[in-house]
Write a protein that binds this DNA or RNA. Sequence first.
DNA 1: GTCTATATTGGGATAGAC
DNA 2: GTCTATCCCAATATAGAC
Lengths: 216, 216
Amino acid sequence: MALTRYELPFSDPTPDLAPTAARILEAAKRVLSRDGFRALTFETIAREAGENPALIRYHFGSKAGLLAALVDSVLYQEAVELIEQLTAVPAGAERHRRLLALHEGLPQDTDAYRNFFELIPHILRDDELRPHLRGLFDWYRKLDAWALKDADDAQPPEHIAPMALLTVAIADGIALQKLADPDLDFEPAFDLWRRLVLGYVESGGEAGGEGGGEPD
Amino acid sequence: MALTRYELPFSDPTPDLAPTAARILEAAKRVLSRDGFRALTFETIAREAGENPALIRYHFGSKAGLLAALVDSVLYQEAVELIEQLTAVPAGAERHRRLLALHEGLPQDTDAYRNFFELIPHILRDDELRPHLRGLFDWYRKLDAWALKDADDAQPPEHIAPMALLTVAIADGIALQKLADPDLDFEPAFDLWRRLVLGYVESGGEAGGEGGGEPD
DNA sequence: GTCTATATTGGGATAGAC
DNA sequence: GTCTATCCCAATATAGAC
């Protein structure tokens, strides 16, 4: 059974919002990527949204309520894209390459990753929000494993899971290096990564050449 | 020529500090990992250090001055360990394995990585501090390339650089997943990574099995 | 070098008018 | 649903005593 569309560990809060609330949330995202977490004040967000500051409390209850909605929205927005694109492609070699192409594209979306890393400290310290991040990572690892399995596998075989974890780590790690240095050319590294992954999954789990690592 | 010890792109501020200032800086690091960036107030740091709040301004000039010292100190502390450990081991296969073992250990130091990710948003937005992070990443990539070259190479060959970038990304990416879920077992993934890296460098740049990626 | 007292700012919450 | 006025608190900065 393939992944159903809404197997995500949290929900996009956007559709449930009144139009004013949706505008406020979008404004908050712009403020976040442009000016950072500290700039997320009622005053600043309201000005960006063209609304009255008191409306934020009315729609989200409190600052914490707004932040919770913002976190889900930021985490969610990246996840949706991937699953849409991956389900549109047949399993097997074609989907492997699509997954890698999508992951290569992620670090290019600097606004989204900027928001992600701005929120990380806040999420990690909040007992309500941390499980959302854990769920997101878990979901990404499952998605990558699913996309990397063979066309004729019902479930991803065991040897795929570690590779899925690495793939997720690579995307985030490269995005961070890219944020630190926008001029960084990570294409050669990603080309290498593509060769490593495809060689691994399409050989059924062979890693390393003849001189490779110690047997387990 | 191997890396000299102080080829780092920034300097550890600690040695230049008066004893009181050093105590304050260490206290700030503890506050940061325990309570986060927002908790970094004169009051909180001074209480943690057992000093008077006004002394922070005296020794560091301002909040910004304290943060600059803190950033360098946090970034620096991880870098020193690596180079010490790596220069203690002969080049070639032994050093390759030592590098990987060290990278595997990094995500375990949750306090250090917590501080790192707490500071990331602040560093990325500060025009003074961002170059320090860029320099750190550049230095890590160079260090990893140097550690992954063959014993008889004077300089790391071309094909090593992309692998060094990936290795740095893996460490940060895994650390992030680990912070989101302390129970995460990333050992199978790191074992796979070890096999991939060793197979690659010890075969002189062969990536992927017979079914591997497209030729360049 | 160390400490106290105070000025100033800015953000979040509350109450209530419209 | 939208807006104004106000209270309260926390944090940085300043000046100056010791």
